[in-house]
């Protein structure tokens, strides 16, 4: 895998060796309040035609690897949604401080 063109993107995890020996952690808890709220917000913004699933994925997949691996699942969603709303000018950076 020394050819950079052949190294899969961070999110492209099928078969990657990094987790080959990592057991699947059988966490059965439902999403916490933060996760459910991010999820509901994503659905609402999609319903209002302000973003699509493909845009959400593009935002998630462009998070740098170190952060991608460190953020929780719904934190990655929030990062993507926030980036999209800023890119589209729906909200301004100063409103989020």
């Amino acid at each position: 895998m020394s050819d950079p063109d052949r190294t899969p993107a961070t999110h492209d995890m099928g078969g990657v060796p990094r987790f080959r020996c990592t057991p699947v952690e059988r966490d059965e808890e439902p999403p916490d309040a933060f996760g459910k709220r991010v999820d509901a917000l994503r659905q609402l913004l999609a319903q209002k035609k302000l973003m699509t699933v493909d845009e959400l994925r593009r935002g998630i997949e462009s998070i740098p690897e170190e952060e991608y691996l460190a953020l929780t699942y719904y934190e990655r969603w929030l990062r993507s949604i926030t980036t999209l709303m800023l890119e589209k000018g729906v909200v301004q950076a100063e409103e989020l401080r």
């Binding site: 099928g14 078969g15 990094r18 987790f19 699947v24 952690e25 966490d27």
Partner: peptide
């Protein structure tokens, strides 16, 4: 569920 979204499940389900 969380495990379905986990890095371990996503990578290993196809390899092993």
């Amino acid at each position: 569920p969380h495990w379905y979204k986990s890095f371990a499940y996503r990578s290993r389900a196809v390899r092993d």
